[in-house]
Simulated assay, not measured.
Amino acid sequence: MNRLTLLGTPLNGLYEVTRQLLGDERGFFTRLFCAEELAAHGFHAPIAQVNHSYTQRRGTIRGVHFQHPPHAETKLVSCLRGRVFDVAVDLRHGSATFLRWHAIELSAQRHNSLLIPPGFAHGFQTLEDDCEMLYLHSAPHVAAAEGGLRPTDDRLAITWPLAVTACSERDRSHPALTSAFTGLTV
């Protein structure tokens, strides 16, 4: 019996994952990950790393980050507390949706996740205070392979829903995309 439902998005390989919730008077149970169910949609590797983030203030942007090949990774991103505007950007060389972004609201109440394939960048903006995110990665983080996009890059034109209340200096300092960037070969 499948406990996860994968919904396609306008960006090939990017899926919203909804989780079946089993609940009663005690509370609820839900499955966050199932290798068998997710393998058919691109999460083939075992989980190599699990990360957890907490963001205190509404309007904060984290990201937009990626790993350069050969360290590109699949991510399954979930919001365990609060609500976020979660964004994935297609950076795949030759993709029909190159440099297009797609966003969905992830929240603890919606019990949903975003399955992000290799060759995508990821970031989010908190829609309320006190948000916690859980990230499952198919590859370990490699500092030398880090990449990032400026969240306010005009070429991406991400429509963040709130005024930005906080963003790290590192994320604000990523160079603007130029025509020289032709994408990632994954």
Rank of each mutant, 00 (worst) to 15 (best):
L6W: 08
T178S: 14
N2Y: 14
L4R: 06
W160C: 08
I61F: 06
G42K: 08
H52F: 15
Q67V: 04
T165L: 07
H52Q: 11
P140N: 00
A72C: 10
H122Q: 08
Y54I: 10
F124N: 01
L22W: 11
Y135I: 04
R155M: 12
H111W: 14
T9M: 09
C167N: 04
G27L: 10
P161I: 14
S179A: 14
R92G: 03
G183V: 12
S113H: 09
L177Q: 06
V50D: 04
D153N: 11
L136G: 02
H93K: 13
S168R: 05
P70V: 05
G27Q: 09
D154K: 12
Q67P: 06
H41R: 09
L184C: 08
L162G: 02
L76K: 04
T18K: 08
V17S: 03
D24W: 12
K75P: 05
E169D: 09
H137D: 04
L106S: 03
T60K: 05
A180Y: 06
N2T: 15
P175F: 14
M133K: 03
T182R: 07
T165C: 08
H41F: 15
R3A: 14
F98Q: 00
R31A: 08
I116D: 00
P161T: 14
V87I: 11
L7P: 00
T152A: 11
S138D: 03
V164E: 09
H122C: 05
T5D: 12
V89H: 03
R62Y: 11
D86P: 00
P118A: 08
G123Q: 01
G148H: 13
G63P: 04
I116M: 06
N12D: 12
L115N: 00
A72E: 12
Y54S: 10
S53Y: 10
L177G: 05
T74M: 07
W101T: 01
F43E: 01
H122M: 09
V89C: 04
N112P: 07
A145L: 10
L32N: 09
E25M: 06
D154M: 07
H68W: 15
R31Q: 15
H174Y: 15
R83M: 11
E105D: 13
P151W: 15
H65C: 07
V64T: 10
L134C: 11
F98V: 02
T97P: 01
V186A: 04
V164S: 03
T165E: 05
E169T: 08
F124M: 01
R31G: 10
I116V: 15
P151K: 05
V87D: 01
V186F: 10
H102C: 03
H52T: 11
I61Y: 03
F85D: 00
A48E: 09
W101K: 01
M133G: 05
H44D: 13
T30C: 14
P46D: 05
R19E: 14
H44A: 13
R58V: 13
L6V: 03
E128P: 00
T55K: 02
L114C: 02
A145E: 11
Y135D: 01
N12R: 07
G27N: 10
D24Y: 11
